[in-house]
Amino acid sequence: MDALMKDGAYREYIIEVEGISKTFPNGVRALTGFSTRIRRSSVVVVIGPSGGGKSTFLRCLNGLEEIDSGSIVIDGIPLDDNKKNRLEIRKEVGMVFQSFNLFPHMTVLENVNLAQRRVRRKTKQEATETTMELLKKVDIPEKANSYPSQLSGGQQQRVAIARARAMMPKVMLFDEATSALDPEMIGEVLDVMKTLAREGMTMVVVTHEMGFAREVSDRVIFMENGGIVEEGTAEHFFSNPQEERTKLFLSQIL
């Protein structure tokens, strides 16, 4: 049983966040000490006004931002000063950015292959096989040899999702993944994300797409001023939000 626990035994909560706070050097208090736990294979949507700490929370989860106090544990590994732990978490937590951040000097294939080869140490052939499979899943296998600048925004974001998935992460973070897209491309990216959710990926999604929240999320967290104002199912938010602040926010975005 102990051995099982060590290498990836079943833990109900894959993300455990305990009282984290973060103040930026310019004095902005982005996170003011909050806690939450996220179940394996669940989809959590984080909503709230800009500057409310949603993105900071997400970026803390894979160590892109340092927390000042509190603790973050990802699948049993604490995110602390230990470099090994940190690297392990970076490998196991994939991230999709608002601005795609594809590598512009590489083809789509090379973008998705890179981490598989350099971090997972796969051979070129193994990596390419995985990549082509993932590109088929996001519906653009024919673009494998194109450069990111030759793709539309929606296509670029789908490649970014495939790139993050290529590492076979246990958790995927989406930081306003559709906010930089033209309206007609939002759908194709959301579809990919929905499929991913149905396949059982643990996802933390910062978004303004309430339709997505309603359709696939298990839980919605409403954040403001660096803390949680209210949380519950999407249905709870749509039918009877408790807090005045939540009602106001929802009335503005719906």
């Binding site: 894979n62 160590g63 892109l64 690297l87 970076r90 490998k91 937590v93 994939g94 991230m95 950015f97 951040n101 594809l102 590598f103 890179l114 981490a115 350099r118 971090v119 970014a160 790139r163 993050a164 590492m167």
Partner: peptide, 8 residues
């Protein structure tokens, strides 16, 4: 950040 989050 993209490179970092891929574990490079």
């Amino acid at each position: 950040e993209a490179a970092y989050s891929l574990g490079l």
